[in-house]
Write a protein that binds this DNA or RNA. Sequence first.
RNA 1: GCAGGGGUGGCCGAGUGGCUAAGGCGGCAGACUCAAGAUCUGCUGGGCGCAGGCCCGUCAAGGGUUCAAAUCCCUUCCCCUGCACCA
Length: 951
Amino acid sequence: MQSIERLKEIDRRWAERWSRERVFEADPDQRKKVFVTFPFPYMNGPLHLGHAFTSTRVDVYARFKRMQGYNVLFPWAWHLTGEPIAGAAERVKRGDEAQLRIFREVDGVPEEELEKFTDPEYIARYYIREAKKVLHELGHSIDWRREFTTTSLNPAFSRFIEWQYLTLKERGYVSKGTHPVVWCPHDASPTGDHDRLSGEGVSPTKFVLLKFPFEDAYLVAATLRPETIYGVTNMWLNPEATYARVRVDGEVWIVSTQAVPKLKEQKEGVESEGELSGAELIGRHCTDPVSGRKVLILPASFVDPDSATGVVMSVPSHAPYDYVALKELQQKPEVAERYGVRREELLGIEPISLIETPGYGEHPAIEVCEQMGIETQDDPRLEEATERVYRDEFYKGVLRENTGRYAGMRVEEAKDRLVADFTEQGIADVMYELMEEVVCRCGTRCLVKILKDQWFLKYSDEGWKAKVREALANMRILPEEARASFENTIEWLEDKACARKGGLGTPLPWDPEWKVETLSDSTVYMAFYTIAKHVNQGRVNGEKLSREVFDYIFYGKGSPEELAEACGTSAEVLEEMRREFLYWMPVDLRNSAKELIPNHLTFFVFHHVALFEPELWPRAIAVNGMISIEGHKMSKKAGNFITVRRALEEYGASVTRCALMYASEGMRDPDWSAKRAMDMSSSLSSFFRLVEELVDRKEWREEERNIDRWLRSRVQRHVREATMSLEEMRTRSALQAALFDFHNDMRWYLRRDVPHRETCMHALRVWVRLLAPFAPALCEECWSMLGGEGFVSTAAWPEFREEELSPEAEAGEELVMQTYEDVQSIISVTRMKPSRIFIYTAPEWKWRVLEEVQRQERREFSEIMQRLMQQPELRERGGEVAKVLQEMLKAEPKDVLRVRELEVLSEAAEFFRRAFEAEVSVYSAEDAERYDPQNRSARAMPLKPAIYIEK
RNA sequence: GCAGGGGUGGCCGAGUGGCUAAGGCGGCAGACUCAAGAUCUGCUGGGCGCAGGCCCGUCAAGGGUUCAAAUCCCUUCCCCUGCACCA
């Protein structure tokens, strides 16, 4: 507890110094640049650990690259576009308790602030103010001079969006269209998934309406299978339902009363002209518009007046519901007779087959119902039966002779043609319906509305997609596994509405009642960071930034002299802005959560390729998993919402950052747990304590030993691992190397021998720098204790030095470790308390045998033996050689480095002595003077010294 | 349902064909301490062994390929993300 307070104090102190000394402000210079971005957060609440996870990844990368000597820009901005902030203000005005409670209890907004939350701008300003403090304390290396907000609250940004949309439109990427949406009649706005009480994931389904002439009107059947009209035998109406006569675009339609309000949102000039009951329609006839046949209207309980038009055409050959309902009715004709249906006519109805499907006979619906034993129209399994028949017929079915011009076509291909033809002939129309009930958050049941004259981004455009694919192919995607998701998204992406009517935002320049929608105004704003700095510094009037000015800055079009005055600046400033834009662009890394791949991150690429030349296309996108808290999804509702503020209060920046970065990498979802945060806190404290101890240390060893070469070699391994991992944003692996593995080696080093000052200090200086991107403030503290120059944040990243790797030293140290374990294992098995330990290293000739084995590709005893016997010294002891060779051939082949065993183990003797509290002697097996009462030394093998222990 | 990513020891997680699993946490034992904490040391799937060793088991489940599989293929189950006008 004490130590965590100390870490927090260090974190705060250094965050202060960084901003006081403007360490992270970045301007163009001679160096190579790296431009990293985090998707600006939406400011309707405080930053939470999910934000911190992603943003810390960006910061770690920024810090890493900065230390590598790049000129790094990490800017920040705030997203205000859209409905939620405005909606929240509205709810506060209405005194909505649930909303107030969230602000108060989850976000921790003080009462005196809450009063002012009726103003959306105030809410945004409040959260921005808080979030900025939090990011500062978290130690993010942000250049705050470039900060901005979106929407018309920031005129300069609006000018930028206007430029963007005018350009997109001019280049043919924007079009006007009409589209069905899930709509709340009460809110008078589209109802997205998150705005729903129920019906998540439900989207409009397109029904084809087939108009069956009926007296002066049309009976309008809704179907998903319009091709089956060739097999129609009768119509179904629900006798309990009420139907309406509706005027639609000059015609009179008969549909269920429930369908009328739906049609009003989807069709022109819809007016109700009176009602009639289902019962009174039954028994009468309408006309099949294709064949002109008379079609009898029959009663059916399965017909749902709430679904589409409440009128169903009956195709018993291919629709299980229709078949079962017809069979039931024919078995009890008296039911139908009550509605005035003539018995003979009813009994005379026979299924008409129109699709031929491999694996089925003439009437698939009948077959399937009989197979499944379905007897009544209320049987729930009818859904499954319908699904099966539909799917098989759709993919495998072929239309029969009785389908006129469509005969012989596959259902899959005929369907669209037929609908187009029927529509042209005035027989068919469309209606959208929700297959499940959708209820808006306001409690109103939603329906489908056709939104007219909406503005769309033409993401379906093949030429556009081709450029996006090209950009993607040249981009680094981290982790690489995420690439497939991007490719997929590009594949299925269709036109996307890009403007809305409600909420905050920038009006579309050519149609100002629409505002540019949030996912659309967040696509190329990274370019704006280069401009925001100049606007914020008052060097140019942001409100007056015209399209022509942006064209100059971004494209170099026009003359700065002519443009300068109109926007309150000089040609020099405009030229500088253009240079700055060219310097920082393109974006070198954008990082976000994987949930944004199908929208924002892909749109980000779309807009870049639409607006900029390939040199300015983004270079890399990184994605990460979604944070969970103690194993559960984080949500305000669940009450496990953790703000960054709270994490900082409890653990401070260094611990929070490291705990997050160690929680996961790649696409894996990180989990935050209080326990693991505490573990991280002890790891960092322990690191810090070690640095302090060594800085204060007085006792050092003078001469250099194998253990020092070993440590230097290990240090290089960690440098290499941390560097390579960070290049790919693998923060967990990097931290594993830079904190834990490094720490373990330091522990071993200090345990093994009195440390060598230079080696030790060298290791510490590397260590502190490797850890600096993760725990920057703590490392600044250590850096200054170690006498490092300036800030560690701008110190040089340790470069991997291959020449410092020493496989020999590592092999030597492994020999020490192995020998240590062997002694230990003997002690534990024999349960003896040793007083004297003798170690015998392998004789020279055994090494020679081993080396011969390694030289030979074939591990063939006689061949190798023959070669060995050519050496006289070995020949003398042929019997022994044979035994040793056999043993070596039994072992797994592996590369072995020659180690000066006697020297290495002698150096380690003192360590063994301390560890085992016993006298330790190291001999060569060839040493004539050795003490070896049981002749153990005979068993010494290379890298496996013989051991003899006395009680 | 469709698409993408996953499922490894009590827990977090390395590991993508070859000495059957890195590191951390937790647990147990010991050292230090009046004690607790911190720290250090050893053990931590099961079994056997008074000389460094051996045997068995294990990577969601089942099947297959291979001399050899956590790793490759097939099937099933489970989890995460997305499926659009939400940010």
